[in-house]
Simulated assay, not measured.
Amino acid sequence: MKAVILAAGKGSGLGAITMTRPLPMIRMAGRTLFDNTVDLLKQSGINDIFVVVGHQKEKLIERINDHSQNGLNLHYMVQEKSGGIGRAVLKVKDKISPGEYFLLIYGDTVTAENIFFKAQQSFHAFKCPIASICLPPSNEMFGNVFLNAQMQITKIIEKPKGDSLGNYVLSGVFVLPESFFGLLEKNRGSMEKALKQLVEDGSMKASMWEDEWLDIVYPWHVLEANKILMDSWQESSIAKSAVLEGNVTIQGVVHIEEGAVIKAGAVLEGPCSIGKGSYIGNNSLIRSYTSLGDHCSVGYGVELKNCVILDNTRVGRLSFIGDSVLGERVDIGAGSMTVNRTVDWKSVSIKDGKRLVDSGLNKLGTFIGDDAVVGAGNTIEPGTTVAPGKILEPRYSVTR
């Protein structure tokens, strides 16, 4: 069976984090979301993979070429203009043979276990189109699904309101026939209408997914996805070329990659991940659910807590980065702090365009885009987004 990954969208709700990269190229738990998806497909026995790219496509195309050199048969199609999910699916129409079924995957979803293998099992059992469904903590943002006792899907409501809410939601994984392209064309590229027609024809069954699942919509979902992946780790992995000086404390499961240097007095509380060639200064505290990218530098006495930090970023001495996401090549000056709660412990909101979105979390820090500079001594309000390339001047208590 062939697989199609939809990776052309911008992920506009993620703000600064996806302005400069495709959403699947966000690195968490030591690897990109795209790498995690491809590895799960490979474990499922799928080697023919088509990826629809669009926003910031060059970075994803480069990664696709890397995987192709490792024995996978990966190809990409370009969706130049955002035209919705259905238009993206139609980009691979001539790659699927008549009578053939294919696995369709939304590239912004995260699972640690193999949801693709489960969908294939359901397809072989039912021998008909399949939609993977799950029970999320909240179902208001997703297409709601209703089914009967035989696992046949009887109704899909794409944007449910009020009493229309169901228990199950679409989890972004489908097994569809080649004839589905005809339904898309008939419905002018509307994925919603094409799926509803399959349901009305009585030919779509559900594959129940009962493990962790997440659709990455807002910035704090990157932290949640990172946690899902790290919680699946069973054992530590420390590269032979990593250097751990005396009096380094390691607690729990850690992944430390090639060439990393951990200086004396540092404490690593797993699960956490330290990327290739990264430097952890003396007496630093790396707390649980921290993912540090490649070639990063963490200065003396820094505390990192539940954060995702991408490649080539520097955090100056005596800083605190908590419940935050930092892009690539970010420069954090000494003594800076991402405050991660309000004084009254109310949930933190983040600005999405002109509106505020309540995260529902009472601990949430800052989201900083690529190449931003935060000068020494800055204290950043919870829920702040810093645009790529922005410079926050140092905060001096005494000036010349």
Score class of each variant (00 low, 15 high):
Leu14Gly: 05
Arg400Asp: 10
Met337Ile: 11
Ala264Thr: 12
Lys240His: 15
Tyr101Thr: 01
Leu318Ser: 12
Pro394Tyr: 10
Glu258Asp: 07
Gln69Gly: 13
Ala3Pro: 09
Thr342Cys: 07
Val374Asn: 03
Ala88Asp: 11
Lys81Asn: 15
His67Thr: 00
Ser336Ile: 09
Asn340Met: 00
Ile49Trp: 00
Pro177Tyr: 03
Ile133His: 00
Ser190Tyr: 02
Ile115Trp: 12
Ser179Arg: 01
Gly360Arg: 04
Ala206Pro: 07
Gly202Trp: 15
Leu104Trp: 14
Asp231Cys: 04
Val298Gly: 05
Trp213Ser: 03
Phe180Val: 12
Asp358Ser: 07
Asp211Arg: 14
Asn362Phe: 14
Val398Cys: 00
Asn282Lys: 05
Phe146Trp: 02
Ser297Met: 07
Gln197Trp: 01
Glu210Met: 03
Pro24Trp: 00
Asp94Ser: 14
Val398Glu: 04
Leu310Lys: 14
Asn378Asp: 11
Ser291Asp: 14
Thr313Pro: 03
Ala242Leu: 10
Ser171His: 01
Leu364Glu: 02
Lys2Glu: 10
Gln251Leu: 14
Thr379Arg: 05
Asp231Lys: 03
Ser284Pro: 05
Leu364Asn: 02
Val173Met: 01
Lys127Met: 05
Leu198Gly: 02
Ala387Leu: 14
Ser12Asp: 06
Ser203Phe: 10
Thr342Gln: 05
Gln43Tyr: 08
Leu229Arg: 04
Met25Leu: 15
Gly322Glu: 04
Gly277Ala: 07
Arg63Asp: 10
Ser324Trp: 08
Asp352Ala: 13
Ile238Gly: 07
Ile133Gln: 08
Arg287Met: 15
Gly281Ala: 08
Lys354Cys: 02
Val92His: 11
Gln56Cys: 15
Lys196Gln: 15
Gln69Asn: 08
Gly369Glu: 03
Gly166Ile: 13
Met19Arg: 15
Ile46Phe: 00
Ile85Phe: 13
Tyr168Asp: 05
Val398His: 03
Val315Asn: 00
Arg87Asn: 03
Asn306Lys: 13
